[in-house]
């Protein structure tokens, strides 16, 4: 596996503006499913609108989107179905308000997960990012609200960030359509395997939990040698998550 995160400027040259078609609600016959995940109020719906040409409601308060919405765009002859999700703080909780998003991120098997974060509140957003990186190998960080971060005098080194997280990082200001072409290009490269991620795995897990995780995930791998996220499944088992116990029995996640 090779890490090849790109900075925004390497990709923008390659963006093929003629290859982009916003398809609106027409989501039939898609080639890839792309999920938009992230904390509440980070601009997921705004990114969604910018890419599909739709007009999902947006609003400056957490919890504006409560149901999932679908749209599509075509890029270089390939059709991407985009799924806008309600905001979530965590995949570890069991609260009902976040269930829709949690389930889609965990079981919707998106080809690419776009994690939209608020650039000026990176640290708190990373809580969810690091959890998502435990379960997927194909993700891109959409560093949204860059205009706001700049106004607040924050300087973000996207290269370091991409290296630390092991996934491509694209700075955007979705409201002004800045960075959206780069995002689309990156999504397309991820979907086609031109970029390979090596996602960050959480390091600061306390010893006793880490040992338990290793023990469990080794056993899981024995039964299902092909699954990529045995560690996450182990984590959920430790939590006693019913959904996971069921899927484990049926083996449906492979």
């Amino acid at each position: 596996m090779e890490v090849k995160p790109k900075s925004a400027c390497e990709t923008c040259v390659q963006f093929n503006a003629d290859g982009l078609k916003k398809l609106g609600v027409n989501t039939s016959d898609f080639d890839f499913v792309v999920a938009l995940a992230g904390n509440p109020n980070t601009g997921k719906s705004t990114v969604f609108n910018a890419m599909t040409g739709l007009r999902q409601h947006t609003g400056n308060w957490p919890g504006k989107t409560v149901t999932r919405a679908e749209g599509a765009f075509e890029y270089n002859k390939e059709k991407f179905k985009l799924v806008d999700l309600p905001g979530t703080y965590s995949l570890l909780s069991t609260s009902e308000d976040e269930e829709v998003a949690r389930n889609f991120i965990l079981f919707g098997k998106p080809s690419v997960t776009v994690i939209v974060v608020d650039a000026s509140r990176l640290e708190r957003n990373l809580n969810l990012v690091l959890q998502i990186l435990e379960i997927t190998n194909n993700a891109v960080l959409c560093l949204n609200l860059m205009d706001e971060a700049q106004r607040n005098n924050l300087e973000i080194n996207t290269r370091t960030l991409a290296k630390d997280l092991g996934i491509p990082v694209v700075p955007t200001s979705a409201r002004y359509n800045r960075g959206i072409p780069e995002l689309i290009q990156t999504i397309s490269e991820l979907a086609n395997g031109k970029i390979v991620c090596k996602p960050h795995r959480i390091k600061n897990i306390p010893k006793n939990i880490e040992q338990a995780l290793e023990k469990l995930s080794a056993e899981i791998k024995e039964v299902y040698p092909d699954i990529p996220n045995s560690r996450w499944i182990a984590l959920r088992l430790l939590e006693g998550d019913r959904n996971i116990i069921e899927t484990l029995k049926t083996g449906e996640f492979v």
């Binding site: 809580n127 997280l165 600061n204």
Partner: peptide
Amino acid sequence: GIYADAAEIVKGAVR
């Protein structure tokens, strides 16, 4: 643990 990781990453990338 997760927040500790997050803090480390932010320390390196945000100024």
